[in-house]
Amino acid sequence: MNGQKILQTQNNNEWETTGTIKKVDEGIKPGVYNIYLGTAPVDKNQYQGQIIYIDRENSVFYQQVKKDFIVHRLNAVDGKPIAGKDVVIAYDGEKATLTLTDTLKNKRSLKM
């Protein structure tokens, strides 16, 4: 994809490009992200992963948690989501808090 992102939707069994082709956000690895498979968050749960895409038109953003995608509402989260950042989102009822995580702390190293 040469450092670009394309948003596509399926229409009558064909994929159509919706929106413009833009430069990918820093921190997001190249690949295909099936965010259409995203599910709603469950109350009282905590989600740790990278924010993949922010859809301001529909007031939602997508977070990759392991191999799954979670669809969060922008107005439910205290804090500003930034695409490409690793975050922890903790729900307490309908409201959630967003906390940036340090990816370097979470990586393991091998000493020789």
Results as ranks from 00 to 15, higher is better:
85 K>R: 11
101 T>I: 01
75 N>H: 12
111 K>S: 15
95 K>F: 09
76 A>D: 14
26 E>G: 02
100 L>M: 03
111 K>R: 10
40 A>I: 12
82 I>Q: 06
37 L>T: 12
87 V>Q: 06
79 G>L: 07
4 Q>W: 13
75 N>L: 14
106 N>P: 00
44 K>D: 09
72 H>Y: 02
90 A>C: 06
15 W>Y: 14
11 N>G: 00
8 Q>P: 00
90 A>S: 15
1 M>V: 13
103 T>M: 03
74 L>Y: 05
98 L>V: 05
46 Q>H: 02
31 G>C: 06
20 T>F: 12
27 G>L: 06
98 L>C: 04
46 Q>N: 07
61 F>V: 04
69 F>R: 04
8 Q>W: 01
98 L>S: 05
109 S>G: 03
36 Y>P: 03
93 G>C: 12
78 D>S: 11
8 Q>Y: 03
83 A>Y: 00
87 V>M: 07
20 T>P: 08
45 N>Y: 07
50 Q>D: 02
27 G>D: 02
82 I>H: 00
52 I>M: 08
91 Y>K: 11
76 A>M: 13
16 E>S: 02
12 N>T: 11
38 G>S: 15
91 Y>T: 08
94 E>W: 09
9 T>P: 00
50 Q>F: 00
107 K>H: 09
51 I>V: 11
77 V>I: 15
22 K>I: 15
64 Q>W: 07
9 T>K: 12
66 K>S: 13
12 N>H: 11
34 N>R: 13
21 I>H: 10
105 K>Q: 07
28 I>R: 01
44 K>S: 09
